[in-house]
Write a protein that binds this DNA or RNA. Structure first.
Lengths: 205, 205
DNA sequence: CCATTCATGTGAGTAACTAACATCGCGGTA
DNA sequence: TACCGCGATGTTAGTTACTCACATGAATGG
């Protein structure tokens, strides 16, 4: 209820940010991530290099799309605590992917998301950073399970199971990009989870 | 049968390399990875910065220890093809970890390995690169399973299951470093796998 | 209409690399 | 033993990602 009409400055800033990212993804796709210096991205977007860094802390952040950590954590927290961890997390991943990539209002983001993922799959440095982000998401998900992360010994099994789920997610995202979105993402995630944890992962046991 | 007496040059080169890495890990541990420039490592080891780069392509490689991809792939390939993927890979991981960290002849490496892993856990850039390496290992393990990686659609379930196993491995390595080697690594891996895939993963079904 | 604030530009500086070239000493050979 | 090739190292200069300090101009709120 608090977000009211964006001021002119905010709109301009958001436009600048969007332009920078769009030109970056285009140039990286055309010439390869490593072959495009940040100065070229800035020039294409009509801004200075410094402005790029003010909007995106690192060159890698130009491509790495925000992960829906909050969305996933909510759904994990809402899942029955009696279920095994892979069931709880797996269900949340499929649901979040459906919300974000299936349906009419997600069509615009979809294209951009696929472009970013393709770059991520093709570029080692981007893959590394992407995996790091999923690792960060792990901590959020473990907390959402209702486990105190301070007690490392007790949290260990949960961390292991969650990281395994997120690895399956990563494989599904990679396949989705390779296939250029030809198969719906939720289905790929479901198949990745099934291949890892058995056919019951997505059944409410 | 071909590896004969190392010549003087080879010994010197190997010594230089070892000195560089030892000083690097020491300095990084003392002052933090990001706070130590490569020039300081070079100076401490008594060489020029250029020499450091000739031995280690990037600063990160000073800490990232070689992963025993070959060892694991061999054991995976030798496992019964009738077993589920997590069983085949899980067994290989536990066996490789036992060979590398348990026993008298592994004691020296153990200390160094723990130092490197602690740095890896503490430093985001190193974590990212380490995850990337495990991702590279995934491809080798999938091949070792006897699956043609060219057929992406057919390899997809295997890739998902293998990446989930390796995620469990990563969690175990992290815990091992946090605990400073207080629990044997094979046991941690076994627990991580069990938490993810159920109690039968390490039983010959 | 004026003062504040915020987005951006500019310039200098650090650090991770890379390439080109010089040097020096081990190692095989005449 | 004397010589020569080659490999390991040093030096220097350059590129690029990123940071800091400061200036500017325009949007904002009174």
């Amino acid at each position: 209820m608090s977000e009211r009409q964006p001021t002119l400055r905010e709109r301009q800033r958001s436009e600048t940010r969007h332009a920078i990212q769009a030109h970056a993804v285009r140039l990286f796709t055309e010439r390869g991530y490593d072959a495009v210096p940040v100065t070229d991205v800035a020039e294409a977007a009509g801004v200075s290099a410094m402005t790029v860094y003010r909007h995106f802390p690192t060159k890698e952040d130009l491509v790495l799309v925000d992960q829906p950590t909050g969305l996933i954590a909510e759904r994990v927290a809402a899942s029955p605590t009696t279920w095994p961890v892979p069931h709880r997390v797996g269900g949340a991943l499929v649901a979040a992917a459906t919300a974000l990539t299936v349906g009419a209002e997600a069509a615009a983001d979809r294209r951009f998301l696929l472009d970013c993922l393709r770059l991520m799959v093709a570029t080692p440095a981007l893959r590394a950073r992407h995996l790091e982000r999923e690792y960060a998401m792990q901590q959020a998900v473990v907390e959402a399970l209702g486990i105190d992360p301070a007690d490392a010994e007790a949290a260990f099994p949960a961390r292991a199971a969650v990281s395994a789920c997120l690895a399956a997610l990563h494989t599904a995202l990679t396949r989705w990009a390779e296939d250029d979105g030809g198969t719906e993402l939720p289905e790929l995630i479901a198949r990745a989870l099934t291949a890892s944890f058995g056919p019951d992962v997505l059944r409410a046991a």
